[in-house]
Amino acid sequence: MNSQNQKNQMNRRRFLQTSTKLAAAGIYLGVFGMPELFGNVVMDKSKVSIPDVKLNNGLKMPILGFGTYGLRGEICQQSVVEAISAGYRLIDTAKVYGNEEEVGKAIKQSGIDRKQLFVTSKLWVDDAGYENAKKGFEETLRKLDLEYLDLYLIHRPRGDVKGSWKAMEELYKAGKIKAIGISNFDPAQLADLLSYAKVKPVINQIETHAYFQQTNDYNVLKKDNIQMQAWAPFAEGRNGLFTNETLTQIAKKYNKTTAQISLRWHYQRGIVSIPRSSQKTHIIENLDIFNFKLDDADMKAIEKLDLNKTQFPEWS
């Protein structure tokens, strides 16, 4: 872990030490602030669960999931097992993360029926193009040791996107993938894809957090009925997000943490989030966001935090 990541973890840990006791993972979800911006949200009250959003092809997807970027080896496998045990059903990975095999092992180890899980992976730039995309998908499926994927994304709009999308459309129609989408596409790149796509993408997974709220993308995706999904919903703690004064004050108001406030803010905007952690307390903490509601003043205060610029220039 580099010094910046260590600092971010320390900031979050220090905040947790002054916060109220973490709730248990087995919390029955409330019904406050059900988002309608990106589709109907479905609550399953028969068990501890996470609300779903309905994608534009009718598939239901949890609005809160578990990200695995940066997790490798045994730590990755154990973290995914703990996430599934805590109640997460959406698991997000990618070829370039180098952890698809560990994610697959964790799914088997969890003992959860595969049909209860929503597994996402992504096509990397090196596999762009019609033939390469099909080979890349089969490699991902083999590493995960699964018969199908719930969602497969073009990770970045690079190379032969048109050929990649054609291959993914065929895999979708063949039942190998339940839904296909994109990641890191700006509105112009999305418009280009829509000009030839026979199957509309269900999701665009992009950098989204309090410091980079992507208002234009948000409005475009809403208009096109494409679900917005946030990677790095905490900005990985960059620019002091975990100790931000505005988020800290709102957190105290609800006896929550800044992380929980951040996730609740995404939820009330109808955005799917995939926070990542290797710490069991954080994995559990991130689930405890459905028993309170941010009021209009809170939402407007967070809106003012927008810097309208990426916090990850090295990934642009």
Rank of each mutant, 00 (worst) to 15 (best):
N244C: 02
H266D: 03
T246D: 04
T257E: 10
R264L: 03
T246M: 08
S277D: 08
I271C: 09
I261E: 11
V272E: 06
T248G: 05
I289R: 04
Q260N: 09
G270K: 06
I284L: 06
I271P: 04
I261V: 15
A251V: 13
R269Y: 04
L287V: 14
K252C: 01
Q260H: 13
T258V: 13
A251E: 14
I274L: 13
Y254G: 03
K253M: 01
K252D: 12
R264V: 02
S278M: 10
S277T: 08
H282F: 11
D288S: 12
H266L: 04
I284S: 07
S277L: 08
T246S: 11
G270A: 05
F242R: 09
I283N: 06
L294D: 08
M299L: 15
I250N: 10
T248C: 04
F290Y: 15
A297L: 12
R264W: 08
Q260L: 07
H266N: 06
T258F: 02
I271F: 13
H266W: 02
E285R: 06
Q268H: 02
T281I: 13
I250D: 12
T281D: 15
L263A: 07
Q268N: 00
N255R: 14
T281V: 12
T257A: 05
F290E: 08
Y254D: 07
D298E: 10
K256P: 00
Y267W: 06
I284E: 15
T257R: 12
L247D: 00
L294T: 09
D298C: 12
L263S: 09
F292I: 04
G270W: 06
L287F: 13
T258C: 11
Y267M: 02
F290D: 06
R276T: 14
N255W: 05
T246K: 14
F242W: 11
A259T: 14
F292M: 03
D295M: 03
I271H: 12
L287A: 12
A251S: 15
N286V: 04
I261Y: 12
L294N: 09
W265I: 13
K256M: 10
E285H: 09
T243W: 00
I289S: 07
A259L: 09
I289Y: 07
I289Q: 05
N255Y: 08
H266F: 01
H266G: 03
I261T: 10
D288K: 13
K252L: 13
L247F: 01
R269V: 01
Q279V: 05
F292N: 03
Y267K: 03
T246R: 10
I289M: 04
A259E: 13
T258E: 07
K256W: 08
N291I: 00
R276G: 09
I283E: 06
K252P: 01
H266K: 04
L263G: 07
H282G: 00
Q249I: 03
T257K: 11
K256G: 01
E245V: 14
M299Y: 01
K293D: 00
T248E: 05
